[in-house]
Amino acid sequence: MPESVEQRTCRVVAEIFGLSADQVTRDTSHEQIEEWDSLNVLNILMAVEGEFGVSISPEEAAEFVSVEKIVTVLKSKGVE
């Protein structure tokens, strides 16, 4: 079965923060990960654009505080 949007997002977030795949879930957010700062929001933005081939606006990037929120933004852009 191909990876779902949520699984792919979890994988990308895990790669950015050097975590293993099972350490990142839908609920993972900036509150648990200390390094989830403004610089890494940019890294998430670039990584998500590279992974899903979409363009993320600064306003949408401001929403990037958890895996769940990232998935919501992606789904709103029609990513399946």
Partner: peptide, 12 residues
Amino acid sequence: LKPAEYLKAARE
């Protein structure tokens, strides 16, 4: 490599 993969590779 994609951006997230660079971050991962760099760490390794």
